[in-house]
Amino acid sequence: METPTADDLLQFRDYSGGAPAQINVNSPTHSGSGGSSGSGGANAQRQRGDPLADLIYDMSTSAQGLSGGGSSGGGGSQPQNSSLDGSGGGGARLSFLTIEYYQQFFNVDTYMVLERIANSMIPKRAAGNYLRMNIGENPDLYGPFWITVTLIFSIAISGNIASYLHHASDGYYWHYNFHLVSYAATCIFMYANLLPAVLWALFKYSLKPVDSADAVETDSATYTPSLLSLMCIYGYSLAIYIPVSILWVINISLLQWLLVITAALLSGTVLIAVLTPALRNSQFSLFLIIGILSAHVVLAAGFLLYFFHSPPESPLAAVAPTSAAPAAAAGLKAVTQAALNAVQGNQTH
């Protein structure tokens, strides 16, 4: 065998006559005796030892698990995912008495919750199809639940602080009013649950008549949001009142009412913009818009008037006790003196 020289190493050689190299990611690295025997399917073709094949398989199975499908592909069935969906081919639907049934209502992450909170406060931030494609596809109760609970305690604590600051200058003996928690919880939970139910019924039974010949998109013309979607939207719309309730502690009437108007208009405008696809299909769209905005303003004004507003004391009420005190003392002294005189007269007789 000849030793290659420097000129031989610098020369180009043509290897086009040979067969091109091929890489098969599914090629087994260990030869099996029976090939793809039994019920292996796609899992039998994948052999451990090839890192690229393992990576592709793991990514595909993860994608199938996230999408909820997979009983028809990948060779192996996924009974857990199909049972959680309740929409699988042979899977039984879950009962509402089980915990697994309510897992679908909490299928959100931190980024999605923060995004929905921002969309509920900032007008024109959400897309035009936000109700149908975002909320309608994945309505959640995680964000609304924690927002309502946080708002209840925020209003109760801030209301007590505002009451304490109002009576801090005089000699009033202040004590904590724990009943504010119950009042706030009743008001907020009724608003966040009953109003979406009423609005859902009005959307359902006030649809405009649609002519199939004139309608461009019949599906969009008859679209009404679900009750869960409305509860999700209304729950997130209360998020703006959490920072506002803290600012209501400042006992300046003008500032408090400016916060009421600003919060109610911002959140109410977002509600109207998000519900526009459903309002467009309703026969009473104008009345629904007025009702939604009015309910939001009444809620904010009710928070301020009941939990934070301390009416100023009347000058007459402040002067009356001081003027009445000497008169009452003089009358009591006269009655006492008359009683003593009567007792002394009886003794002399």
Rank of each mutant, 00 (worst) to 15 (best):
V298S: 11
D54V: 02
H167C: 03
I23D: 12
L332F: 07
G49A: 09
F203G: 04
N134S: 10
E313M: 11
L340S: 09
S60Y: 09
V149T: 13
V113P: 00
S158G: 02
F203L: 04
S31W: 07
S36C: 03
A184Y: 06
A221C: 03
A185F: 09
I292L: 07
S72W: 15
Y306F: 15
G69C: 10
G159A: 09
L207H: 13
A92Y: 13
A301L: 10
L141T: 00
K208H: 07
P144M: 04
A127R: 14
P243G: 01
S182D: 05
F287H: 07
F303E: 03
Q80R: 09
N177I: 04
G65F: 06
L207R: 15
T148I: 05
V319W: 11
R132N: 07
A197Y: 14
A334M: 07
Y176H: 11
T98M: 06
A278R: 03
K333F: 01
N81T: 06
W257L: 07
N177S: 13
H167I: 02
P79R: 13
T336K: 09
S16G: 11
M133D: 15
V216D: 15
S31K: 09
P144Q: 03
D14T: 01
N160W: 02
S67I: 05
T348I: 08
A6M: 00
R132C: 01
G136F: 06
I289E: 11
Y130W: 11
I242W: 04
S253K: 12
A162N: 08
G331S: 12
G88N: 03
H349M: 05
Y15P: 01
Q64T: 03
L202R: 11
L202N: 15
N193H: 01
G136M: 07
Y205T: 11
Y111H: 05
L259M: 06
V249T: 15
L228G: 00
S120E: 00
L305D: 10
N346M: 06
G302H: 08
Y111N: 04
R132W: 04
Y130V: 01
S220R: 06
L271C: 09
L9Y: 10
Q11V: 00
A185T: 03
I152M: 11
S33P: 01
V270Y: 10
T61W: 10
S212F: 15
F96N: 14
S39K: 14
L199R: 04
A213N: 14
N134R: 13
G32H: 15
D109M: 03
D211C: 10
V335L: 10
D170F: 08
R93N: 08
D7R: 12
N24W: 14
M231P: 00
V244A: 14
L340N: 12
F106D: 06
A215Y: 07
T224N: 09
P315Q: 12
F145K: 04
N177F: 08
F307L: 05
D109R: 05
A263M: 11
D7F: 04
G70Y: 09
M1S: 12
S310Y: 15
L304D: 06
L265Y: 15
F153Y: 15
I261L: 12
A327C: 06
A192N: 05
L275P: 01
S314G: 04
L332A: 14
R48I: 03
S212P: 05
L266W: 12
